[in-house]
Amino acid sequence: MNTMLEARDLTKRFVKTLDLAGKIAQKLGAGVREEVVHAVNHVDFSIDPGEVVGLVGESGCGKSTVGRMVAGILPPTEGKILFKGTDVAGMDDADSKTAALQIQMIFQDPFASLNPRMRVQDIIGEAPTIHGIIKRAETAAYVEDIMLRVGLDPDYRRRYPHQFSGGQRQRIGIARALAVKPEFLVCDEAIAALDVSIQAQVLNLFIGLREDLNLTYLFISHDLGVVEHISDRVIIMYLGRIIEIAPTEELFKSPNHPYTKALLNEVPRLDARRRDFAPVAGEIPSPIDPPSGCHFHPRCPHATERCRNEVPVLKAVAPGRVSACHLNDTH
């Protein structure tokens, strides 16, 4: 069986170009150099058809950058993405157009991603008509169908985005993505901006759509509770690298990597009352100048000399589980 999606050695570097002051300083020989951000650093993972894979990590660790490369809206610096076994970079025009439709992305800020001057019916109906997925005459019925599916009242089809609440706007974004009949959705913090009760509604929508339409998700979130609820497997990133991948239940029951352990320990839980917080020390380092060896070593209680010098690679620690920590070599 083919995988739905595979990332091989996927890497993205951003070069922060100098501002005017920097350029002048450089001309004057001040030794100011352009900064390179290693946003995503040689990551490998695969996603099976029908699977929901959660991608978690703290701010700036590269989640969105991975998501945007997977969705085809950001070219990788190195490495490749295989969609159903074929390298998307090597596809001919027709195949690459098909792949672009089959992989859709849903963003955090529902408002910023919707054209404020378009009516809902056009936001949802435009792409499938242009791409010939439906005939123009069928558009109205098609839009109505999709609106019902995502829980929007079709009577609102002539309204503009600003006339909807945050939760409804996110539904419009989901409807727009579904309209081109995708198989694979990249959801980037898709419920993060919503209130708790609305989050639950939209999360339920994602769960229902997955079953009804047999969708595959890469579900990006910093909220471990949400990821635990919806994912079959979870990928944990730290500073541009994947540090652990595991089936959800196993990960939450027995995390392997010290960073994963620290992260899970910090997740506030309803049943953890008046607890004694014992947080992991230190700040998240800058991806411009990441620590040597294991990126986590300045904050890790188990760090040794080796951790400062040698990058731990992802290794199998159990069937279907990988983790990147030197501790796994010592016993």
């Binding site: 708790v196 639950a200 999360l203 229902g208 959800t248 309803l270 049943d271």
Partner: peptide, 24 residues
């Protein structure tokens, strides 16, 4: 009751949450 039902980690994995309908 509805708010607590909306907290994902408090509910069985993959199952729909006991959501509150409508909005504030």
């Amino acid at each position: 009751v509805g708010l607590i039902g909306s907290v994902p980690s408090h509910n069985p994995r993959g199952q729909p949450l006991a959501q509150i309908p409508g909005m504030t």
